[in-house]
């Protein structure tokens, strides 16, 4: 590994550990009471005291987030393909996408729970809603990003729409879809946690909701936050790895 490669691996770890150390230092030096802000070491000790509880709830939340993410991706891609081919559909659907994006998810999450009922379905719908717009907008842009020379080249041998889609549009859209996925990962976790607030009795979101009202469960609040942060970072890393493999050809992967 090159010196640059080593640095790329070590620098983020130094950053995160440094941040936690500053946090610890602040709590210790200023004598902050634990119920306001516990030490990172205390939180980690708490996590170690009951790992089963966190693994169980993390699994639930991760599964909900994944389902919502996948549903949003699938629907958005199909719609984006139609929109990339029809200016009318594009202009008709864009405002709906904007409306979904600008309406705070917290505002309509309760309605979704009334509509789909208490449980997994509602949470997946809420999660899919928040992930949908980045996939849709980036998908349309990506599918349209094909080099005009390439399109003409395909036309010169009478390529069908389907061939242009499969051979030119979808591969060209891939970098855009990965960019959307990076945004959507964070949104999916927000959606799942929020969905659990309103429509579930399990998962990390539910654990937070329960702990918020009970002083004796305060550490559960912090434990859930840490696990969520870890999950988000891990999925982000996974997407980064997939992106590096899938987009070896793309300019963004060149250093």
């Amino acid at each position: 590994m090159t010196a640059r490669g080593v640095m790329r691996l070590i620098a983020p770890i130094v950053g995160v550990v440094g941040f936690l150390a500053l946090w610890q230092l602040y709590v210790v030096l200023w004598d902050v009471p634990a119920f306001k802000l516990p030490r990172p070491t205390t939180i980690i000790d708490h996590l170690r005291s009951d790992p089963g509880f966190y693994v169980r709830n993390a699994r639930t939340t991760l599964w909900e987030a994944f389902l919502g993410f996948a549903v949003a991706f699938a629907i958005a891609l199909v719609l984006a393909i139609f929109m990339a081919h029809s200016r009318f559909l594009d202009q008709a659907i864009q405002p709906i996408a904007v409306l979904i994006q600008v309406t705070p998810i917290v505002a309509y999450a309760p309605v979704v729970v009334i509509w789909r009922g208490f449980g997994l379905q509602s949470i997946v719908v809420i999660t899919a809603f928040v992930c949908f717009v980045p996939f849709l907008l980036n998908g349309v842009r990506g599918l349209r990003s094909v080099d005009a020379n390439l399109l003409e080249l395909a036309q010169s041998v009478n390529a069908t729409r389907r061939e242009i889609l499969m051979r030119l549009r979808l591969p060209s859209a891939l970098p855009y879809l990965f960019a959307a996925a990076r945004i959507a990962v964070g949104l999916a976790l927000i959606g799942a946690v929020l969905g659990e607030f309103f429509g579930s009795n399990s998962g990390l979101g539910y654990a937070i909701k329960v702990a918020q009202a009970r002083p004796n469960l305060r550490m559960q609040l912090w434990g859930s936050i840490y696990v969520l942060a870890f999950m988000g970072a891990a999925t982000m890393l996974l997407i980064g790895v997939l992106e590096r493999v899938a987009l070896r050809w793309h300019s963004s992967e060149r250093t």
């Binding site: 080099d147 020379n149 003409e152 010169s156 041998v157 009478n158 051979r167 591969p171 050809w249 793309h250």
Partner: peptide, 20 residues
């Protein structure tokens, strides 16, 4: 003639598929 693939086009830019 185009449908019969009678033309080999060389565009202004190389226009290669970057992923292939």
């Amino acid at each position: 003639a185009r449908a019969l693939k009678m033309f080999g086009l060389v565009p202004q830019a190389p226009a290669l598929l970057p992923w292939h």
